[in-house]
Write a protein that binds this DNA or RNA. Sequence first.
DNA 1: TTGTATGCGTTATCAG
DNA 2: CTGATAACGCATACAA
Lengths: 342, 342
Amino acid sequence: MTDRPTIQDVARLAGVSTATVSRALHEPGKVSADTATRVHDAVRQIGYTLNIAAQTLRQRRANALLVVVPDIGNTFYGEVLAGIEQAAHAAGQTILIADSAQDAAREAVYLSYLRNGRADGAFLLTYPQVDWDSVAPVPETGLRPVVMISEAARLEGTPRVTVDHEQASRVATAHLVAHGHRVIAHVLGPRGTGLRRPRYRGYRQALADAGLIVHPGHEIEGDFSAASGARAGAALLALTPRPTAVFCANDEMAIGLIGALARAGVRVPQDISVVGFDDIAFAACFLPAITTIHQPRRAMGTVAVALMLRILGRDGADASLQMLQTLPFALIQRDSVGPPPV
Amino acid sequence: MTDRPTIQDVARLAGVSTATVSRALHEPGKVSADTATRVHDAVRQIGYTLNIAAQTLRQRRANALLVVVPDIGNTFYGEVLAGIEQAAHAAGQTILIADSAQDAAREAVYLSYLRNGRADGAFLLTYPQVDWDSVAPVPETGLRPVVMISEAARLEGTPRVTVDHEQASRVATAHLVAHGHRVIAHVLGPRGTGLRRPRYRGYRQALADAGLIVHPGHEIEGDFSAASGARAGAALLALTPRPTAVFCANDEMAIGLIGALARAGVRVPQDISVVGFDDIAFAACFLPAITTIHQPRRAMGTVAVALMLRILGRDGADASLQMLQTLPFALIQRDSVGPPPV
DNA sequence: TTGTATGCGTTATCAG
DNA sequence: CTGATAACGCATACAA
């Protein structure tokens, strides 16, 4: 890095002290209008920019927030990130995006960002594989600067913003019941995820509500990948009684499943109806377009940031904010659901 | 942030100077085995971790690299990021992922990361909207620490790793010619992208190679979104002569286009053949699975990191590395191409 | 092989 | 309203 101008250079040029320069830059009210302009002119003239490392060292805060996603290639996270980024930027926070790739070692590296001061807090969109509870609480509030989004680590008091996955799954499954389906299968999410159980429970709940039973083998293992959905589709065709509808725990699996069915000559929704979860971008483009559960991704991001600011005790934080935020979901009806075949 | 133990605490506990602690941690060879263990024991005992800000300030380097993507929700970038992350991590570099959202203001914020020392270099997977040439060259090598991936900003000497988009597009289009198509349309990428022109030129080149002409209106505007592909599909149906094949400048548009055709009762590939570009994950899942051009995304990431290390003059950098790296692409044949209807 | 001393660029404290 | 000054935690040049 070339030698960049420092606050000293600005001070010299403006004929003031470095303290005044700092104030002119960060506490506009505390300096006379005259010196303010002199300082700003000098800044412009020599092209001064703040040295972040020095500021972070001195302030003992990075003004940076970490976001850990399990798979950056998954489109679901894009809009959540957008929401986070916007809200964080408005609050003067930089966000660092990290892809844990579901790998504990990688996640441990990102956890270290909080210890070594690279970031002041972390958003987890992934199921934690390392001990984020080891993060030191913020002195001002006594809370750990870790916010979970969508995922649920443990029941205890980790701040969290999410939709009610169980209720959403119940609604999704009930939608199939409402279309007249009586034999409904479920493709589950992977173990070691906070999402598997609540989505499964919602499915069971909806069946119970309708007085339906789960036939043996109708709860099919999946791992949220399209490939696992395809495998589930193949498995499903061998089932007796054959399901007339399937609730997939996410859209990727729904897409893979529909593809496998199509290759076997089974049409959706004429022969089998399918509901997904997440409303990823491709759910709308797919043939057929997929009926699914939409989560308010952008809002989840902005709410999570609000939560974080409160935890950090930053200015402008809403002190009345609850540490568990449950946001509304929506069933998006498209073309993958129809009546059961006669 | 709670008061964390510093190198001083470690020194005190180990009974050595801070300089020795620093050396024990970073220059293992330069310290006796005995003190090394004493220091490491002390580190473990009090749970010391390096303060990144202090190190960055002192070393005048962040050991962090920025990656700017135009849209984090686009699956294409995921694997490139994975490649970058892996190689960067191996070289002891942290990577910061940034979503410019195609917005110049956002991009300017990220550009400032290089000025204020948050990052030492940047990878651009986006067409630059701000003046990255204003980044100061690295003293050791005289090169600017900016590497473009896939995109081309200007012809001049910005280091770059990419496939030959023109040649790849030529191959993609020639594939349609080889299947007997004589009337082939093209859906272009958006203006203000480095990708629009080369992919268009490859298309034209392939037609010229085969002695074919471009009919009026057969060059359809798109913007890389599925929605624009759908519009293109609708437009295409009104064309005379009607194309029997289309080369779409990316997979998203191909997907949107096929969807629009399907809704109009036109089947792919029976009625119209389609080739895409990028080989995003959904290209393989789609119905029909899409024939497309695959780019070695992961390798693009690792090569870009190698280039960056060379520019930064970091250890282990391959000094013989060319500043323009053209990587091989591949035509992936799937189900969206067939012979023209009779 | 180890220690001493210094400065990286800021901001907060304390006087004035 | 402004200035002088002292850290923040670390790594390096120089001495020993």
